[in-house]
Simulated scan of single mutants.
Amino acid sequence: MRQTWRWFGPDDPVTLAHVRQAGAVGIVSALHHLNDGRAWPADEIARRKAEIEAAGLTWDVVESIVVHEDIKTRSGDWRTLIDNYKASIRAVAAVGINTVCYNFMAITDWTRTDLDYPMPHGGTALRFDVVELCAYDVFILEREGAEADHPPARIEAARARLQGMSDSDKARLERNLIGWVPAREFIFDRASFRRALDLYKDVSTEGLRENLFAFLREIVPVAEEAGVRMAIHPDDPPFSLFGLPRIVSKAADARALLDAVASPANGLTLCTGSYGAGAQNDLPAMAKAFAENIHFAHLRNVTKEPDGSFHEAEHLDGDTDMVAVVSALIGEERRRKAAGRADWQVPMRPDHGHAIVDDIGKKVNPGYSCIGRLKGLAELRGVMRAVETLTP
């Protein structure tokens, strides 16, 4: 598997030199400063690619060309925005980038309630607490209809939890949920978040799914022509937040998407953490079932809790059998290589590392510290080498 690393551009505290020292060979990045729905200019793409290559690395995967909310809701200027998206696909293909990871999550990107959850080893992890989400949704945001989306016992637990929270605790929770995510093209406050939710008042789960399929029917032919493989990232977490529909959360969702637009250019990002946070998902089984359609892999692990909460685990611990997942992906690589495919390697990246050692207390993008991901990549590299050696 091709070992890559997510890099957020020149402002990323983790430098390209650090990435090389970690042992990765490829970069996963985007033009984050232009990620607002406009078509990416060729000169900006070339400049970023040259910067990466000057560090001795290659730009292997674009993650992500943002899918604007107007495209998801098919409202506003969605027609122009789809045309811009097609232009960006062609532009990255022109410089040799042939994998594009994207998501179709309504409003939110990956979401956590705690960005510094203390771990027994002394470092911190990302965590999603369903009670804290309920406390914010029902009692702080005061979203219309929120109480109907949470079990009564959870609402009572949230009410009690809120009583023990200081104003700074509440502000932290709001900031974690709606105010900041790496590479988001804008920042919400409470008022703007409520307005964004209003955009989806009349969008059902099936309506959003059909909007995704309509989007794919337009962009997949362009990707085919350009030699690009689109790899959709699953919902994170894989269940509804703030009453918003979720449509890429389980195996049946992935199968429906692949069947809707059957093409080698229409594929999946296998994120073992996002799918893994759903009790319904068997990751080794999914890796085998969807092997030929997996164009990119995010390898991380989570430990689920009885109430549906979860936290980021060590890469080789948690609830997913990472050795089985890696074995399935390496088996697919061998199949592709035997078939004579030039693009037989599956790019992977270690995802959401813990904050440990010198990264504790530093300014880092939560989940994207250097040493935690370096540790994860080293562990995954060991698994890959063992599988490659022991399973001819």
Results as ranks from 00 to 15, higher is better:
residue 164 G to R: 12
residue 322 M to Y: 06
residue 207 G to N: 04
residue 202 D to K: 14
residue 125 A to N: 05
residue 87 A to Q: 00
residue 72 K to D: 01
residue 9 G to S: 11
residue 133 L to N: 07
residue 185 E to A: 12
residue 64 S to I: 09
residue 320 T to H: 13
residue 240 S to T: 13
residue 141 L to W: 04
residue 259 D to E: 11
residue 257 L to Y: 07
residue 360 I to N: 06
residue 205 T to L: 08
residue 337 K to W: 06
residue 18 H to T: 01
residue 42 A to T: 12
residue 13 P to W: 08
residue 295 H to G: 04
residue 366 P to Q: 01
residue 242 F to G: 00
residue 16 L to A: 03
residue 157 A to S: 11
residue 234 P to R: 10
residue 335 R to H: 09
residue 229 R to H: 15
residue 32 H to G: 05
residue 73 T to K: 05
residue 242 F to T: 08
residue 41 P to N: 03
residue 159 R to L: 06
residue 275 Y to C: 02
residue 312 E to I: 13
residue 358 D to L: 06
residue 75 S to P: 00
residue 76 G to M: 06
residue 214 A to E: 11
residue 201 K to D: 04
residue 281 N to E: 01
residue 262 A to L: 08
residue 158 A to E: 06
residue 68 H to S: 03
residue 2 R to Y: 12
residue 248 V to D: 03
residue 192 S to D: 07
residue 310 F to N: 02
residue 264 P to N: 10
residue 4 T to C: 15
residue 176 N to D: 04
residue 312 E to A: 15
residue 255 R to T: 13
residue 146 A to C: 02
residue 170 K to I: 11
residue 167 D to C: 08
residue 2 R to W: 07
residue 48 R to L: 15
residue 155 I to Q: 01
residue 238 P to D: 01
residue 100 V to W: 02
residue 211 N to W: 05
residue 52 I to Q: 04
residue 320 T to A: 10
residue 125 A to M: 08
residue 91 A to Y: 01
residue 187 I to T: 11
residue 317 D to T: 13
residue 182 P to Q: 10
residue 72 K to S: 01
residue 365 N to T: 05
residue 330 I to F: 11
residue 186 F to P: 00
residue 108 T to N: 13
residue 2 R to A: 11
residue 46 A to R: 15
residue 384 M to E: 05
residue 44 E to G: 00
residue 145 G to F: 10
residue 69 E to C: 06
residue 196 A to H: 09
residue 164 G to A: 06
residue 145 G to K: 09
residue 4 T to N: 15
residue 101 C to W: 09
residue 219 I to A: 08
residue 342 A to Q: 12
residue 177 L to G: 00
residue 174 E to W: 07
residue 329 L to E: 03
residue 309 S to Q: 08
residue 362 K to E: 11
residue 139 F to W: 06
residue 232 I to R: 11
residue 72 K to V: 03
residue 290 F to M: 04
residue 308 G to T: 07
residue 242 F to I: 10
residue 71 I to W: 06
residue 189 D to Q: 14
residue 373 R to K: 11
residue 387 V to C: 05
residue 275 Y to D: 01
residue 259 D to I: 12
residue 376 G to Y: 08
residue 21 Q to I: 13
residue 265 A to S: 15
residue 220 V to E: 14
residue 49 K to T: 07
residue 42 A to E: 13
residue 348 M to L: 15
residue 131 V to W: 13
residue 219 I to L: 09
residue 107 I to K: 01
residue 151 P to E: 12
residue 232 I to V: 14
residue 371 I to E: 10
residue 285 A to K: 05
residue 32 H to N: 09
residue 110 W to L: 12
residue 159 R to Y: 09
residue 28 V to M: 12
residue 344 W to D: 00
residue 109 D to C: 04
residue 285 A to F: 10
residue 213 F to A: 00
residue 308 G to I: 14
residue 269 T to V: 10
residue 116 D to P: 05
residue 389 T to N: 05
residue 18 H to E: 07
residue 353 G to N: 04
residue 53 E to Q: 12
residue 74 R to Q: 14
residue 376 G to L: 09
residue 124 T to A: 06
residue 250 K to C: 10
residue 369 S to M: 10
residue 344 W to A: 08
residue 339 A to I: 05
residue 360 I to V: 14
residue 13 P to E: 04
residue 327 S to G: 07
residue 142 E to Y: 15
residue 280 Q to C: 04
residue 160 A to G: 03
residue 282 D to E: 02
residue 74 R to L: 08
residue 201 K to R: 09
residue 121 H to D: 07
residue 381 R to Y: 07
